[in-house]
Design a protein around this nucleic acid. Structure first.
Lengths: 132, 132
DNA sequence: AAAGGACTTGACGTTGACGTAAACGGGTGT
DNA sequence: ACACCCGTTTACGTCAACGTCAAGTCCTTT
């Protein structure tokens, strides 16, 4: 039983994710996306896989990763498709990335705590000003 | 009782933070740093305040914020020096930033969980391969 | 058939965050 | 006096991540 995949055009996909077609083509150019090209026709079509990848890419961007970093991360997800000969390297790399993520979380939490501290001081100060 | 501040030159500061003098001057140009200029002499000198700011800037960079975002954040810390007339705006802005930080933390945690999941699958798979 | 709209591939422009080189000045050791 | 080192300003170069045309292709609609 073959499931009919909903394939969409580049501008539809762009609209869906609130980005431009140019951006999507750029991600393909950088090797982050690999849409199917319609038979004998020069048209990119995007299915569930590319949609998922694009989601990952945009999340990575929001988190401040570069495109090359993101590429390496999503390649980790796709490594089962590769020969799988350098699994140890992949595992080691994954561990390194995990540690970096943990550090980022720590730093963000710290930053948030500091801002929160200042925030509370200010709010306190404002209360006093409005009380009198 | 005046405390003698240890003021350092631009290259000393650069060396301390493993960046270049150019980077420090650029941050000043963008309004992120305001070193004291030695009297009648054209030399920048950096004290505790600039060092603290630079620390904040570099942490912001590691977390993927742009320089203009970082500028707004450290201006929140320094708002007591301004007239203080628009405190409400500052508080509101601070709350917005805090919420964004919370979202970033959530996303990072999610990403980490996903990577960890794949990582464990791979490690499991490798065990089986080496066992036989 | 002619027009219109969505897609394609170049190719060049732009912005942020610096790198790098040029040309100058002030103090210091020899 | 001269070289040397550290600092300064000014200016152009660079790289990532796209924006913005230009020119052509394909399909549909009138």
């Amino acid at each position: 039983m073959v499931v009919e995949q909903p394939l969409v055009s580049i501008s539809n996909l762009a609209e869906e994710f609130l980005i431009t077609p140019r951006t999507i083509r750029y991600y393909e150019e950088m090797g982050l996306l690999t849409p199917v090209h319609h038979e004998k026709m020069s048209q990119r079509l995007y299915g569930a896989r590319e949609r998922a990848r694009l989601k990952l890419i945009l999340r990575g961007k929001r988190l401040g990763f570069s495109l090359s970093e993101i590429k390496e991360m999503i390649n980790l997800y796709d490594i089962d498709r590769t020969e799988g000969l350098q699994l140890e390297r992949a595992v080691a790399y994954g561990e390194k990335r995990l540690q970096e993520l943990e550090e980022k979380i720590q730093e963000l939490t710290l930053l948030k705590a500091e801002l929160l501290d200042y925030h509370q001081q200010f709010t306190e100060l404002m209360k006093k000003c409005t009380e009198e």
